[in-house]
């Protein structure tokens, strides 16, 4: 999986015609400079050598060096990834909460007004572009009501001491309550905006799974044993309906990361996705390739974690 993903990234970014260096530096450099840069990036080597170098680098944690930024990709990732991860995790929390509550109830109350309302809510939550709902949320909660900050992460005096880069964690570790408050205030709008979108998908998934388990054989058998309806619904319907949800959470995480690009741009969130978009704007192939490689690794890591969680919650899965 890792190898295939990395190969795809390489093919997409390296094997296409066009010269990264010319594209990056454009008219700003002399032919000699371009030549030197190409040599430095190893672009004059045969493609297979480039491929092996790239794979070797990616697997040993060397993601290359941007042309337009003095920092290495690893450094950039270390600075921006925690912000993205914090946003993504908070978004996931919102998505899972909304999805399970609304989807579970809708599946239980099938074809009632709540079900129809819940379904519509799910569809609209997914249909609304993040950048648009984000904009509306900013306008309403930040500009009009002034309850929450409209953009950015906790900054200035509120910024907690950098330990992990996860501000919530850092401010907890240092016991800095002012920073914690500021961090959470900054986090609320982007996390809800992002979370609702993915929550829309979760509503759909949970609802369908709930409906299917509720008509399953073991639910009927449980009713035949005279169990309390609450138990039947919770232990037999709900819990078993969540297993397939956990297994596809990896895909939802990918969706979340994709939309984090938009959320970060909308809320001016200093994250990895924002950095990626900036580098694309500057046509910095090396940086783009490095960051995408990192994202690919994250995806693989997440799917591993999901596998482990599935093994923990489902007794049928053992390694």
């Amino acid at each position: 999986m890792v190898l295939i993903l990395l190969t795809l990234v390489f093919l997409l970014l390296r094997a296409v015609p066009g010269d990264p260096v010319t594209a990056t530096l454009g008219g700003r450099a002399t032919p000699a400079q371009i030549e030197a840069a190409q040599e430095a990036m190893g672009l004059n080597d045969p493609l297979i050598v480039q491929y092996l170098q790239y794979m070797g680098g990616a697997l040993t944690g060397d993601f290359g060096n941007p042309v337009t930024d003095p920092r290495g990709v690893v450094e950039i990732v270390a600075e921006t990834a925690p912000a993205t991860m914090e946003l993504a995790l908070a978004g996931m929390l919102v998505a899972v909460t909304v999805g399970i509550l609304v989807g579970g109830l809708a599946g239980r109350l099938r074809d009632t007004p709540f079900d129809i309302g819940g379904r519509l809510f799910g569809i609209i939550a997914y249909a609304a572009p993040v950048f648009w709902t984000g904009l509306l949320a900013q306008l309403f909660f930040a500009v009009k009501l002034g309850w929450l900050p409209s953009s950015g992460r906790a900054g200035g005096f509120d910024q907690p001491e950098w330990i992990t880069g996860f501000y919530v964690l850092d401010s907890l570790l240092t016991g800095d309550m002012a920073a914690l408050q500021s961090t959470i205030e900054h986090l609320i709008l982007p996390a809800i905006t992002l979370g609702l979108l993915v929550g829309g998908i979760f509503i759909r998934l949970v609802r369908v799974n709930m409906m299917q388990t509720l008509r399953s054989d073991y639910v009927e058998a449980a009713r035949a044993r005279g169990l309390r309806e609450r138990n039947v619904l919770y232990r037999y319907g709900f819990k078993t309906a969540l297993i397939p949800i956990v297994t596809i959470m990896g895909l939802q995480f990918a969706l979340l990361l994709g939309n984090a690009v938009l959320t970060e741009r909308t809320f001016n969130w200093p994250g990895l996705a924002q950095a990626l978009v900036d580098f694309i704007g500057q046509r910095d192939y090396a940086a783009v390739q490095g960051i995408v490689t990192f994202i690919a690794l994250v995806i693989v890591g997440v799917s591993l974690i999901i596998d482990i969680i599935t093994g923990l919650v489902d007794p049928r899965v053992r390694y």
């Binding site: 895909l251 990918a254 690009v261 996705a273 994202i295």
Partner: peptide, 8 residues
């Protein structure tokens, strides 16, 4: 391809 973030 399917596992990769669609938008990215």
């Amino acid at each position: 391809v399917y596992a990769f973030p669609a938008l990215v």
